[in-house]
Write a protein that binds this DNA or RNA. Structure first.
Lengths: 121, 121
DNA sequence: ATATTGTGCATACACAACATACACAGTTAT
DNA sequence: ATAACTGTGTATGTTGTGTATGCACAATAT
């Protein structure tokens, strides 16, 4: 498992976990059927509580990204490359709409946004 | 006062307030010395508690955007157009770094981002 | 059986939001 | 002058929500 959580971040730990695993799945880094580490092991590795990991896994389950089987484990769900691409774009666009509405509130044109973004990307 | 708060939003009310007033100041819509409405009046108008408005105003004060004078009111701080522009850019860039790191986590190039953003801006 | 896995429950803590009462500054009446 | 009134921000105490935790329970595999 390759995730990095920050205790100083304003974002809840479970959400950081969710976002990172989610991104990895939608990037295709974790293939279908891949078994996520047991929540206890993940908790130990990340030095957080079992509950926190479980909450992140629950979010993944709710988003349809993994399937959870009691006593067995959590597995990356099966879907076609097309489905995956669409899911990825939906996820990104959802966030992007929030981001752009923020930029708009400052009166920025899309050209302004591109200009600024080029500098830091 | 021209702000719109959403009770359904996941963001705290005081933060929505802060962000909107902050943006208006940095856009130059609220000129220096302008008097913000009294917190009671603002609270009544927005149908929230006095405390909630106060918390937002406190954030503005802490950011150096307004000056609070007990018994008198809260006034937009004085600064030059150059200072204002710089402050605005700093504020936007700070948020933009968070946004771009999210896009990067999905493996998007800056061209990918521009492509998607054009569609929704 | 025993070990491994996920699940449910009760709790501690932090924070957002609220109603109410308080303290300070300016203005007016005496 | 100074007391009283009005308008302003401030402080206190309470309630509800959400994050994170530990420990005990249920289901599965060998």
């Amino acid at each position: 498992m390759n995730v990095a959580i920050s205790s100083t971040s304003e974002k809840p730990i479970y959400q950081q976990l969710f976002e990172q695993i989610s991104a990895q799945i939608l990037k295709g880094e974790l293939e279908s059927g891949y078994s996520l580490p047991p929540i206890r092991q993940a908790a130990l590795e990340l030095r957080v509580s079992v509950i926190t990991v479980k909450k992140a896994w629950e979010e993944l389950e709710r988003s349809g990204l993994i399937n959870t089987v009691t006593g067995k484990g959590c597995f990356v769900a099966e879907f076609s490359p097309e489905e995956m691409l669409q899911l990825r774009n939906e996820t990104i666009l959802k966030q992007m709409e929030i981001d752009t509405s923020y930029y708009k509130s400052f009166g920025l044109t899309i050209e302004d946004v591109f200009e600024l973004m080029k500098k830091i990307y």
